[in-house]
Nucleic acid binder design. Sequence first.
RNA 1: GGUCCCGUAGCCGAGUGGUUAGGCAACGGAUUGCAAAUCCGUUUACCCCAGUUCGAUUCUGGGCGGGACCUCCA
Length: 479
Amino acid sequence: MVIRLHNSLTRSLEELQPLQPGRVTMYHCGPTVYSSPHIGNFRSFLFADVLRRFVEDQGYAVTQVMNVTDVGHLTLDDIEGGEDKMEAASRKTGLTAWDIARKYEAEFHACQQALHVRLPHHMPRATDFIQEMGVIIDDLLQKGVAYQRNGNVYFEVAKFPAYGRLSGKVLDELEAGARVAVNEEKKDPRDFALWKVDAKHQMQWDAPWRDGARGFPGWHIECSAMSTHYLGEQIDIHTGGEDNMFPHHECEIAQTEAHTGKRFVSIWLHARHLLVDGTKMSKSLGNFFTVADILQRGYTGLELRYALVRVQYRQTLNFTLKGLDEARAAIARVHGARQRLVRIREGREAAGGDDLDGAVASANAAFTAAMSEDLNVSEALAAVFEFVNVCNKAQPSVAGAKAGLSAFARFEDVLGCFGPEPVPGAVADAPAELQDLLAERTAAKQAKDWARADALRDRIAAAGWRIVDTAQGPRLEPV
RNA sequence: GGUCCCGUAGCCGAGUGGUUAGGCAACGGAUUGCAAAUCCGUUUACCCCAGUUCGAUUCUGGGCGGGACCUCCA
């Protein structure tokens, strides 16, 4: 099936046509590791994860690179009162910039695990690619599209006519609307830094090119260096949050294409920011959630993942705690349908005669069609839930149960928000004491001692198991 | 000020020039000792005003409202 994606560069849906048949290269702008990852960060990263999973589902071999920005990308000269993120965190906490970077990088990885992210094949740190950045900077200097001033190196935007195309910025207007202090050093206010010199900066390197001054890299150059290193000069897909479109990606295009002379990226994808309770998430409004905040409230990573993934990436997602409760209920519905199919497959529940072949085929087709059209997860989920309904109504055969489970396994493989296949659930699977309680409860029911029966049921429920009464007798299922 | 996106039932959210999205919640029924789960059924829709059209929630224009970007940001 043809995969169509909305290319930000052309503002239209485009067919994914990999540079190499059967192989897709993806680069994702990753975290800047100066604070704890929040749910907004992970909306973007989960989008990248689902994209990778679906492209793989469609038979492509994917190579995925996500950078870790562990050196600051904001400089005093660029913004009035601005300060490097890493340096600012260091000043506030007393930790070194390096400690800050490693601490939050570790947090980021923990969140990836909690949210069931399939890890990118490479997650390079910017600080490990200073040499590679230097090679590009040197080349840009040689080509005359970058220039040095007091050790600082700037890219000369006027030398790259396509600058502004991705974000739709008209160059003349950028100056008028700029809210930055004029940097007298630059030839043009729009020029951006490739290399900065600042004696106060904790992270410093000797400039990796001849006659360069000791300093640190500008923000944008790391992505050019790392994507080129791992994926080559041209890549199929590049993603990021919508805020990255300008200036970051605009600058990436300029410096990379000036360096290689080739088109850098085929398809640019940008994830829309989420809102919380209808407004922009911010610490001052008290609607700011880190991933850890949500987990501490008792929601699972799976539930958070569902809540963040269920809306198509280009739509504004309104995140609410109620939405997490809905996610929990929705996952439980899928879980229940899968659990019954497992019981039938394992011979723990009577099988019927439905092979489910037609239902499986149409659910898969609808799911694929939805995902192929710019990753329409909402529509894909509708296909999943319609399939849940069909399965629940059917009397599946053992083969039907297997077929149904394979469909659910595929949906899980792509979306990752339903969890692994449930265990069958039977009295024999429960701890012995719960089996004893269940036997007591059955006896109480036979004696029509309803109060005692209900009390025993509550005790079993408190232990995390649910009693399901059937015509064949009670069954215990882990909740 | 410039550029761009959105406005669908109680909530979240698909989609379409005429015909059922889906989830959550609520209500009624089946089932149950009562529940849970499941199934069946039901209720509240397409921001406002013009225009195009046989017909618009869907296209066009205007208005109102919300949001994003314009060198921190996913």
